[in-house]
Amino acid sequence: MLEKYWKKKLNKSLIGYLIVIILTLIFLQKCNLFRNTYSIIFKSHNTRFINAYNKVFFSGFCEKQSHGYIAFVKEEYKNFLPKEKIPKIINFDKGRKVPSWIFLKTNPKIDNELMILLNTNLKSDKLDISNYQIINNYQNRCLFLKKND
């Protein structure tokens, strides 16, 4: 009986159903549904965030605004970072915004003991970090530092 019902429906408006299917497939391709579903299942939010910002022209993992590196530090050292403060962030690529919003805090205080340096390869003179301990070093371009006691 169900088969007869569907046969009747299809015969009546086969073209309409085909149009719906084609439009749905176009929309699914626009949303990249299958790849995105795979990403959600097999990749963490932080990985997806870093990958998303690697693809934009104004940022990258450790270039321009460097959203990726900051997100990496926030996730990797979440137990190490103070709860109410965020590290000082210095970007040597002048004129770039500093995306401190990644730490998701409201009017946060800056912790001068911790520092994130971005795009150090663009600094004209030599960098003096003798007072700091290097906690993380990405290709000598992005550094996460802690002040020596």
């Binding site: 929309f27 699914l28 949303c31 790849r35 995105n36 997806r48 965030f49 919003w101 998701l104 409201t106």
Partner: peptide, 27 residues
């Protein structure tokens, strides 16, 4: 559902969102 899945992968904020809409939301 399709839109939510797309949003959960794209994740990029616009200029205005980074500058002030997100900070209001975080408030």
């Amino acid at each position: 559902l399709f839109i939510f899945i797309d949003m959960s992968n794209k994740l990029i904020l616009s200029w205005d969102a980074e500058k002030f809409w997100l900070s209001k939301s975080l408030n």
